[in-house]
Design a protein around this nucleic acid. Structure first.
Lengths: 209, 209
DNA sequence: AAAAATTAATTAAACGTTTGTTTAAATTAA
DNA sequence: TTAATTTAAACAAACGTTTAATTAATTTTT
């Protein structure tokens, strides 16, 4: 689906507002004002507020897809190196698309919209499949342990990053980082998360003692 | 604050509905029907929908508090045993109060309501303080490593459990557990999470090689 | 202990807003 | 000239809250 500049404008305004105030907390008037368009344009272009939401979600989830295929097929990387790249890629995507991530957290918790639930499900299946393959490769080559619970391992990666991103306000205060400029703070949590998760995954996965 | 049966009825209906459909997605009429009371009773008892939300949150967050003090002072437990009990206690609280937890996830992500944000902040500070003490004790006694990032460690515990609880629908499908009775499934994830987190925390914390 | 007076609880209806969507006219582009 | 875009206004429906009347419970007075 191709969108005009104006349609993208509307979707981006909707994304920001839905992330901050939720779907029901955001009015069509809010969106149209933020996007600087007449409120009737939303129904005109997207059919309804709900359809705008779905269009925005599909549009952004394209951006959000992890680019794993090429990296996983790279034969110059060890399985552990691939795993570490996967971690960094996930951290980067999520910290760069925080609005969309907040919306996703809410949607996968609620299951209110069938279309979106299906999209999330598909995304999860795809990622889980690729990671399973990677784990298998590592096990076949003798780098990884045999008994690895992939879904649970993913819960820890996704959960840790998500928890920090969605509660960064509290994290800042607890660690006295209120005055750190935001760009620096974002880099700070990226680095911290990367080190932390790589350490954990090394232990969970690695065969060497 | 003491509440009559009817007030508790209203708060419990509100909790369930807010968890499933969000604050703005739930109408006062919804709540009053679910609680089998006249819709004017909500303003009569609580003042407003928003105040009902705050009252419900405060009421439930009392239940939700982890009972850590006594356990942490028990001198017959090693620091690692205490850490493991903390993990199990957290898993139990969260899996037993899933509605409240969903509301908390949304609220700490949104920061829409000052009163509730302050409550969550207080809860987090308290827990973090107790855990820091426990880590310190473990380090002083030579059981734990010296360089432990407590906030990040907490992100992994809270994040992993929260991720599984809030996306259990997907976890079920991905693992082909759709037909498992719910009580059994809840026990299943409790056990899995407990083993998984204890393994990770042993590695992060333990000094022995 | 009974009656009266007072307070609290409960109700259905109504209030004024805000909501998402549609309309029909006006403007722009093809 | 035709089609697509944009607009302000209007729409009914749903919203949170208030009202005023009624019933139930409690307290005070006899």
């Amino acid at each position: 689906m191709e969108y005009s500049d104006k349609q993208v404008q509307i979707m981006e305004a909707a994304e920001t507002l839905f992330a901050a105030k939720g779907f029901n907390g955001t009015s069509v008037r809010d969106i149209s004002e933020t996007a600087h368009v007449n409120q009737a344009m939303i129904s005109y272009y997207f059919g309804s507020k709900e359809k705008l939401f779905e269009a925005m979600f599909a549009y952004r989830s394209g951006f959000f897809k992890l680019q794993l295929e090429n990296m996983l097929q790279n034969k110059e990387l060890t399985p552990m190196e691939k795993m570490e790249q996967l971690i960094d890629q996930y951290i980067l995507k999520l910290t760069n698309q925080q609005c969309f991530h907040r919306i996703m957290v809410k949607e996968q918790m609620m299951n209110n919209n069938e279309f979106i639930t299906a999209q999330i499900h598909e995304m999860k299946l795809r990622n889980q499949g690729l990671i399973k393959q990677l784990i298998q490769e590592g096990q076949d080559k003798g780098f990884f342990k045999k008994d690895i619970d992939v879904p649970l391992m993913m819960m820890t990666m996704v959960g840790t990053v998500s928890q920090l991103v969605t509660t960064q306000h509290f994290y800042k205060e607890i660690n006295g980082l209120q005055d750190m400029p935001d760009a620096e703070f974002q880099q700070h949590i990226r680095t911290k998360l990367s080190q932390h998760l790589k350490k954990i995954f090394n232990v969970i996965l690695s065969n060497e003692e």
